[in-house]
Design a protein around this nucleic acid. Structure first.
Lengths: 339, 339
DNA sequence: TATTGCAATAAAAACGTTTACATTGTAAAT
DNA sequence: ATTTACAATGTAAACGTTTTTATTGCAATA
């Protein structure tokens, strides 16, 4: 009976009534307004405790139109990708430290879903948004930036508008991987790309091409395959490559999931790594060491990217006029046994 | 100039003014109330399109106190665990199909964080909640259930209250794994458990013990280790086991992350699987086949669990009085090469 | 013709906040 | 003794909805 009521939300009004003051005063106490008698403050605080009062965030947001609603939106392309999970963890830690809640939307590379979620986020009056746009000209996110909503882009930037963005050195990262393969003596190095329209895919391809050139290896376009950044795509494209009349002797995989897909195909074919085929993945996972064989990979500081993005977003929410910033994080080649 | 305005949210009021009707009428049009003149309806709908009006979900929730706010909360213990990521995907798909948005909270097995997030979810007036409580007597979630908020528990139930719950056959799953090891001739089979207070950990231990008994293997309690369900814990406890005077010849790992941790340790020690030590994991991953060696594992239908949970939650939101239900999903032993 | 009934719409209250503005009471200054 | 100033508090409007209740006009009935 009493325990039932424990969780019935009490409002400012009830607190005010019980404390014998007006709701304005209670509000002032809650928001630490200086203009309130210390004695009154104490009394009100006691009642707040007694009633287990928690402010209603919905009412707060409605009133304050995205000021101090303490809610940020996150729009990620694929929650199955461990990279984004790590990014999410970084975001979440910072959000928690700053008492922000997260509303997470996973649009699975589906533009219709992306649009729906952006509408929802907007109509939820989020204070800000961390997003990985589908491409550089993503109109949906671009419009949102133009509307003045604080936004930080991760992993993928926006071309038509000034916006904070946290990126990684995709080109350098890819270069170091492919260069490593070339220096190890591999001649027919394939590249399995994610979605071709993504800036990151293009940059990685550039790094790949440059490394080949620098090592005097001619570029064979049959060895470049474009997929959709997902596991299945890695499985299929790797299969295509291995069935080629003259198959590659090494593979550079464009992301996490592609790498896992490619590995699956290689194992199904019974090939041994790296003697029959070498592989390097873009994006490391903490369990890469437990793969067969331990995977050589380009490591992105995913968790750190998430943290930085969230920190920057909070800065921007608090000061919308501050100059925009673009941050490029370094990658690192982690050499294990797959090449 | 004009593009700036494209995304300025327009309200019911503006639509009403432009259409020359009252806001009540506009609201009726939006909610498909039958009591509105077809002619008026058409006119209003046109204005809605022109103004790109989107209803404000915050106002809606404030007014309707968790009716049709179309927002559900998800409280998960560890987003790094691929199992929960899969569950989340299932939830998300169903939510999307039903036009619900998700507010996702990851409490990282931290009870303080759990409490904070529950408070937030409540004060966000979510329509319902999908949660994996920290233990059977989780007061925080229990209270919330008592308060009448629609809740579905996944992976872990609640003892003191009647609540919908989606579980897996932990005991049978564990039994099948350990029985498989025993039948293969292994004698010293260790169990690395997750958090001991979790019902799932206990059930899996029971399955482990029963399988040993059934195969005439005495239970050696030094071979049972309790950790915290995380990767590091798998690394450390596996190390302890391998350093034992008479180490195990097989390991049954209590979850995903523990398995990966254990694999890491085994590889670091340079032991070969399964000749020197066998391992079976609880919980399969789609890339388990790419591990070294391809992992034998007990597969939980994680995605399906998420789907069922979300479906059940929506049913309950729409009919809070319906009888509660408890659903137990089957597991499946996927035999590969690690034992 | 005066009443009734009904369809279509408008008006207004409510949800729980924040805040600009108005009202008190009291002490200092004239 | 009256004004002034200021601190403390209260009042009320606003945020954008939904919904209950009230109003209108018009056709059908007595």
């Amino acid at each position: 009976m009493s325990s039932e009521n424990d969780y019935k939300m009490s409002s400012l009004n009830e607190v005010a009534k019980k404390a014998g003051v007006s709701i304005a005063t209670v509000s002032r106490v809650i928001n630490n307004s200086p203009k309130v008698n210390p004695e009154t403050r104490l009394k009100v605080q006691q009642v707040i405790k007694d009633l287990k009062y928690h402010p209603n965030r919905v009412a707060k947001r409605l009133r304050n139109k995205s000021a101090s609603g303490n809610l940020i939106g996150v729009l990620i392309p694929d929650i199955q990708n461990p990279f984004y999970v790590e990014v999410l963890r970084g975001i979440e830690d910072v959000a928690y430290e700053n008492k922000y809640a997260l509303i997470m939307c996973n649009f699975s590379q589906d533009e219709k879903k992306e649009q729906l979620y952006l509408d929802i986020l907007q109509s939820e009056s989020v204070d800000g948004l961390i997003a990985a746009p589908t491409n550089e000209h993503d109109q949906k996110v671009t419009n949102l930036v133009k509307s003045g909503l604080p936004i930080v882009c991760v992993d993928r930037g926006l071309a038509d508008v000034d916006v904070d963005v946290i990126l990684v050195e995709n080109q350098n990262g890819a270069y170091s991987a492919v260069d490593h393969l070339a220096k190890a003596g591999y001649k027919r190095i394939a590249y399995i790309s994610g979605l071709r329209q993504l800036p990151s895919s293009q940059e990685r391809e550039a790094g790949y091409s440059n490394a080949l050139k620098a090592n005097g290896i001619p570029i064979d376009r049959t060895l470049i395959r474009y997929g959709d950044s997902r596991h299945e795509s890695g499985v299929k494209l790797c299969e295509e490559l291995l069935n080629l009349p003259s198959p590659p002797d090494a593979i550079f995989a464009g992301n996490n999931l592609i790498t896992l897909g490619a590995l699956e195909t290689i194992h199904k074919k019974g090939l041994t790594i790296p003697s029959q085929i070498a592989i390097i993945g873009f994006d490391d996972m903490y369990w890469s060491i437990s793969l067969n064989p331990p995977l050589t990979a380009v490591k992105q500081p995913a968790y750190e990217i998430g943290r930085r993005a969230a920190e920057q977003l909070i800065l921007r929410i608090n000061d919308p006029a501050r100059p925009t910033m673009s941050m490029v994080m370094k990658t690192e080649l982690v050499v294990r046994s797959s090449c």
